[in-house]
């Protein structure tokens, strides 16, 4: 059928496959942005806007700082995306532990520190620690565990946990809106906190 021109035709027949391989490799190089700090920041940004909205809406009144600030301040503190389990707690507690030790910073609110139960969610365990005064006031709240086995969870929670903190401090209860885009963590957070409040109240 075809006359045989072997050397030429092997090349010719290889060509489409080589072109496919080359364009695939090129595409990977173009698309693959290294998942270091910049990527985390990128995620933080994109997550911040949708999350900020419900928070302001819920907060209606006096949110002292512009919504975006807490997230960026926490995010850089995270030693980013190595998936070792101990990343998030230190990052978050570094912002809150001082507050727990000096509860008088803004208002004088003193109480005992109570660890809530660990709530297992689809993305990992959530555990809340709260400082509750004898009158039932929530002086401080802090996530001592949150889902961190994925970079995406870490990024989402870096953004969500400060918002949850503010929501709880303002509502002074576990009756909060939660953070959209972090519903799983929010649910675990609320459950763990509610357990503390139930225990402390009763």
């Amino acid at each position: 059928m075809t006359d045989h021109h072997p050397a030429a035709s092997l090349g010719k027949r290889l060509l489409p496959a080589i072109a496919l391989t080359a364009s695939a490799a090129g595409l990977v190089v173009v698309l693959d942005r290294p998942p270091n700090g910049s990527a985390v920041d990128g995620r933080g940004d994109s997550a911040a806007s949708p999350d900020a909205a419900p928070d302001t809406a819920a907060g209606a009144t006096p949110i002292p700082t512009p919504t975006a600030t807490p997230a960026p301040t926490v995010a850089p503190a995270v030693p980013v995306p190595s998936p070792s389990p101990s990343i998030v707690p230190p990052a978050v507690s570094s912002t809150t532990l001082p507050a727990a030790k000096q509860p008088a910073a803004a208002t004088t609110c003193e109480g005992k520190t109570i660890d809530g139960p660990t709530e297992n969610t689809r993305w990992g365990p959530v555990q809340v620690e709260a400082v509750v005064s004898s009158s039932g006031q929530i002086c401080d709240v802090d996530a001592i565990q949150s889902p961190n086995s994925h970079r995406r969870s870490v990024a989402i929670n870096n953004n969500a946990l400060p918002i949850l903190h503010r929501q709880v401090m303002k509502a002074q209860s576990a009756n909060i809106n939660g953070v959209s885009g972090a519903t799983v963590t929010s649910t675990g957070y609320v459950r763990s906190l509610q357990a503390i409040l139930d225990g402390a109240g009763g």
């Binding site: 496919l20 595409l27 990977v28 698309l31 693959d32 998942p35 990527a39 995620r43």
Partner: peptide, 15 residues
Amino acid sequence: GRERYMALAFVGSLI
């Protein structure tokens, strides 16, 4: 591509 290894996976699926 922004997530780690997803550029590879995406191009793999194209192939």
